[in-house]
Design a binder for these strands. Sequence first.
RNA 1: GUGAGCGUAGCUCAGCUCGGUUAGAGCACCAGGUUGUGGUCCUGGUGGCCGCGGGUUCGAAUCCCGUCGCUCACCCCA
Length: 430
Amino acid sequence: MSRLSFKEIRGTEDILPEKIGVWRRMENAAREVFDLYCYEELRTPILEETGLFISGVGETSDIVTKQMFSLADRKGRSLTLRPEGTAPIIRAYLKHRIYKNPIAKIFYMGPFFRSERPQAGRERQFHQIGAEAIGCDNPSMDAEVISLLIHLLNKFGITGGRLELNSVGCSLCQGPYKEKLREYFAGEETPLCPDCQRRLNKNPLRVLDCKRPECQSLIVDAPPLPDYLCNSCSEHFQKVQAILKSLSISYHLHPYLVRGLDYYTRTAFEITHPALGSQNAVAAGGRFDNLVEKMGGELTPAVGFALGMERIILIQEKEKVTAPLETRLSVYLAPQGKEAFQEMVNLLKELRQNGIKSELDYEGKRLKNQLRLANKLNAQYVAILGEEELRRKTITLKNMDTGKQEELPIDLSDCLNFISKVLHLIPPHI
RNA sequence: GUGAGCGUAGCUCAGCUCGGUUAGAGCACCAGGUUGUGGUCCUGGUGGCCGCGGGUUCGAAUCCCGUCGCUCACCCCA
């Protein structure tokens, strides 16, 4: 096995036929839910100019400083495999003047790339489903986005998540608060971890996110961010909470929750799930009121989220969420002999053209082995055509669930009618 | 980028501590038992450069070094 020349590169994986149904069901379910909330899909390229992410995500962010898959094109320009979805969506929003609509509600799904060391729930190529509502600063929209996210998770069969909520304020309130944080941490006796000492200068908010015990013990008594919000941010935050309550969405205030991407303002949230490992966030998002302007547009508020599809699947597997049934093979054709085989090639074509999922033995197996294979393929019926049937001008149809079988006239259209009838012609779907 | 654990059949693993015939099991796969009847059962079979390279040794899956890969954790995030 190790002699194979090529394998998937680290942190990427093949999604095999036996698992693809899980993905397709998730994608289809997501599209249904988004439609209910009047979100429309936008697909952006996987490859973008590197500068888009530097200015969008922030040049001090970890994503930009050490996690991007970048490459040079033939003219030496730097391109990057998208590490996140929001910056490209905003780029497309501005380029195509989607802002002509008062509010743009957009969703996306697909692969993203970050060059981190893989571990449970984290791969280098991963898949996200995300949504952005651009052009609305009403706290109701924050609540709608959260409510939409929860609707999606439920549709995927996921319950038991925990919604953490915070407000990180705007540029007005963040300045004084950062100073306050610096004062607080500088005044403490036990030192922060080396990483955090650097963070304290660059972006003190990040210190709040540190999980090291020595920092945690200081963080628990740090001045909580929500206490330092400006009036307008504070009011916004209160309203978001009031609306969530009226929608019966339970949440946990987390005054030290900050997001790792630089563009977030005001509302920040995260949904964690106990079935996940140490990467326990299944979805996260928040408001980004300055990003559109930063990327060259008018000042335009926006709010959105992204969820990790691999993490959804991890939870589903751990919690044994039962997936809807796969499409079942309706008829397996079992001919005995060359003449019978020729007949069945024709029947196979007719069956498939009439929407009946069917399969034929091309190997000339013995009947016993044909039935064995049909059983493994979970076929509903096996159509048997052998010497006896040919002589009597019939075909034998065996119900694999009940074991009962009956002989039908060999005429193709009669056959089709009967099979269609017994199958009730349920259209195949996943 | 840092740390720890693990690499033996398609899959899950035993064997390694204490080196010693042809390296095992279960599942899966193929075939036979039934020359035209599946699932269960019985019997047989295919399938291994024991991750790779080097070292120690009369002898290495087993001990040592290196290397690559995987996994989990740190970091960070979906």
